Amino acid sequence: MPEDAAAVVSPVRVRYAETDQMGVVYHANYLVWMEIGRTDYCRACGAAYRELEAAGLRLVVAAAQVRYHAPARYDDDLCVVTRLVALRSRQVTFAYEIWRTADGTRLVTGETTHLPTDPHGRIIRLPPSVQAALASKLAPGHGGD
C-alpha cells in the first residue's frame, strides 16, 4: 500500500449492510468510502468540510470514475488512500486507492472532480485560503492555477 506525504489514509471496516447476500461489497459503497477519504483529506489540510460549508462553499461532484480491481468482503479492514491531483480556482480533482489491509490487495482506484459553488449552486472561485490549505498536500507534479 503506497503512502506518501501527499496522501491521507482513512481506515474503513466493511459492515454487513454494505454487502450483498454473498458477502461482497456493493459497488456504490466505494464512492461513499471515497467521500470519507476526501473529507479526511480536507480536514488534514485544515479545511474541514463542515467549516467550508459554514462559510458558504460547496464542492459538488462533477465527475466520478471508479475502476474495480478486486472485491472487498464483509468485515474486511480497508484503507482509503486519498490524494489531491489537480487544484484550479474552479475545479478540484481527488484520486483514490482502496486497499485491503490484511493482504495488501488493491481493490479500487478512482477519481472525483468537484466544482466549488455557493449555497445556490453557482460556480465560484475557491477562496485563496482554501486553495492554500488544499495545496499544502498537493501531490508532486500536479499543479493549479
Rank of each mutant, 00 (worst) to 15 (best):
C42M: 10
A6D: 06
A17K: 11
K137Y: 14
V85K: 10
G144V: 12
L52E: 13
A132T: 12
N29I: 13
G141S: 13
T101Y: 00
C42E: 09
R13I: 00
L115I: 10
D103W: 05
G104C: 14
V9I: 07
G143V: 07
K137T: 01
E53A: 08
Q65W: 06
G141M: 09
T117I: 11
G110N: 09
Q131L: 00
H120T: 13
P119V: 05
R15L: 02
D77R: 06
A17W: 07
D76L: 00
A135Q: 06
L126H: 01
S129Y: 06
L126F: 09
A135Y: 02
A132C: 09
I124T: 14
P128N: 04
A6Y: 13
L57Q: 01
Q131C: 09
D145Q: 14
D76W: 00
V81R: 14
I123C: 05
R125K: 08
E3R: 12
T39F: 05
R90E: 14
A133H: 10
V81I: 14
H114S: 07
R83E: 15
V25T: 04
I36F: 10
C79G: 13
P11I: 13
F94N: 12
Y74K: 02
P128Q: 07
G23P: 12
V24D: 11
V9A: 11
T113H: 01
H142L: 13
G104R: 08
Y74W: 11
H27M: 11
H142W: 08
A62G: 09
R122K: 13
A133G: 07
V60R: 01
L134A: 06
Q65V: 10
H114P: 01
P119Q: 02
V24W: 06
P127N: 03
A70E: 10
V25P: 00
L134Q: 11
P119S: 04
H142C: 12
G37R: 12
H69G: 08
I124V: 14
T93L: 03
D75L: 09
I123M: 03
E18N: 03
V24I: 14
R67N: 14
L87Q: 02
L59E: 02
C45L: 05
